[in-house]
Amino acid sequence: MKAWRSFRDRRDWFSHDFCQLVYETWLFEAVATGRIKATGFFNDPVMRKLWSQAIWIGPSPGQIDPEKEVDAAVKRINNGFSTHERETAELTGMDWDSNIDVLTREWEARRIVLD
């Protein structure tokens, strides 16, 4: 686990000090040339910051004891220490919103079959 913390620290540094800066530069150019419409981007620094926010996740570390790790994630969500989105990304590297879309389709298909 100590190794993973070290890897995560380096990944956080890289994403913050490199990826985010490249993204902000790209976004600035894309808005300036009209490829992306971002209301208030050039007029309001708060709006620019909101438009420029990104979450850099990367791959998950894998799980040593999946049951305990999922239980811990549920407790963090239930106690307001984390979100479904963050826990999904950290446990699986996937996107919570996409999972919900797929689960909705699956449950709908299952309901149709069972009815």
Rank of each mutant, 00 (worst) to 15 (best):
Q20T: 15
Q20S: 04
Q20H: 02
L21K: 11
E24G: 04
E24N: 13
T25L: 05
T25D: 08
L27R: 01
L27E: 07
F28K: 09
F28E: 12
F28H: 13
E29V: 14
E29P: 03
A30W: 01
A30T: 13
V31W: 05
V31S: 03
V31I: 13
A32F: 06
A32T: 04
T33D: 14
T33H: 03
G34Q: 07
R35N: 08
K37D: 14
K37P: 01
K37H: 11
K37A: 14
A38E: 07
T39I: 06
G40Y: 04
F41H: 02
F41V: 07
F42L: 11
N43K: 09
N43G: 10
N43F: 00
D44N: 15
D44C: 10
P45G: 04
P45V: 11
P45W: 03
V46F: 06
V46G: 00
M47C: 09
M47W: 05
R48A: 14
R48N: 04
R48C: 10
K49V: 08
K49D: 14
K49W: 12
L50G: 07
W51I: 12
Q53A: 06
Q53S: 03
A54Y: 04
A54R: 15
I55Y: 00
I55R: 05
I55W: 00
W56A: 06
I57T: 14
I57D: 09
P59T: 10
S60G: 12
S60A: 15
S60K: 06
P61Y: 09
G62E: 02
G62L: 09
Q63K: 07
I64R: 12
I64K: 12
I64D: 11
I64E: 14
I64P: 00
D65K: 08
D65C: 05
D65T: 03
P66Q: 01
P66M: 02
P66V: 00
P66W: 00
P66D: 03
E67G: 03
K68E: 12
K68A: 10
K68R: 09
K68H: 08
E69H: 06
V70Q: 10
D71Y: 03
A72L: 13
A73F: 07
A73W: 09
A73V: 10
V74S: 06
V74Q: 13
K75M: 14
K75R: 15
R76A: 13
R76Y: 12
I77R: 09
I77D: 06
N78F: 11
N78W: 12
N79D: 10
N79Y: 13
G80L: 04
G80W: 02
G80F: 05
G80C: 04
S82H: 07
S82W: 05
T83S: 15
T83E: 04
H84K: 08
